[in-house]
Design a protein around this nucleic acid. Structure first.
Lengths: 136, 136
DNA sequence: ATAATTGTAATATTTATTGTTACATATAAA
DNA sequence: TTTATATGTAACAATAAATATTACAATTAT
């Protein structure tokens, strides 16, 4: 993950958990993270699609959690924003005439499954509520 | 990790383990991975600096393992090539006037330590020898 | 009606990654 | 001692990924 998507999503959700039952605007959230509001709205779109967040349009609109923050784990967040495997990408076209090149991507895939799963397991025991309580 | 460095390094080291006691050239290795030889030489430079590989210059030169393949774990490889945390980058300048923005990077850092460590622990029980034996 | 807000497309900018060319230096072998 | 074959590395080019920006239609409370 050579991007800030997990950090951004977690920041957004922490604010929504911190101000549960309030509707926060993307502009206000963007001011806390210090990024462009459109980035925030895009990420909120992804989080809505994942069922973690809901929105209300128009004046006095904004975003709020769509689940109790105890029911959201950091694994849920990671899974919605993750774009790559922990160990990175495979090389595209290893030489099929080489005994190693021929099979390495299949073996790497197995390794990716194991390692990604171990990260998810670790994140599954951490709730958003618990994380957000850091900021009392 | 939105790059192929781990895949490339593991491929290189698997070849060196597969042909232990031979000196393999960067051109030959590059032909197996199907990438530019200079990429391979650069990565080999990093692996040498980490003490995993040695080189011999000139005609009949090449690269070989500098440790027995049982003494190299996938964690050693990951640690030498990893450039980012598993969960990605932090946002650079969260708003210090916001209770969440003020502290989130410190909390993210703690999380990064835990998660990165869990990946390393998982990789530490996997040796290069064992991985290379996949390709008999 | 007005003001504030989401949702999204289009585009620009910046940063990261990968690839390429070139060549100095080293060394085995003819 | 010359030649062929490597490493080591710098400089630059090309491609891809990530982030930022502008613009505006659609929505809704006041």
């Amino acid at each position: 993950m050579n991007n800030t998507r997990f950090a951004t999503a977690l920041h957004i959700l922490t604010l929504l958990a911190y101000k549960e039952h309030e509707w926060l605007s993307s502009d206000w959230i963007a001011g806390s993270i210090n990024v462009n509001p459109v980035i925030v709205r895009k990420e909120l779109g992804v989080l809505m699609h994942a069922g973690l967040v809901k929105s209300r349009k128009g004046k006095e609109g904004g975003y709020a959690l769509d689940k109790n923050s105890v029911a959201i784990t950091l694994a849920d967040i990671y899974l919605t924003v993750k774009t790559t495997n922990v160990l990175g990408k495979k090389n595209l076209l290893p030489n099929p005439k080489c005994p190693v090149g021929k099979d390495i991507n299949k073996k790497l895939e197995g390794l990716n499954t194991v390692i990604d799963q171990s990260v998810i397991k670790e994140l599954q025991c951490k709730t958003l509520k618990n994380f957000a309580e850091n900021f009392h």
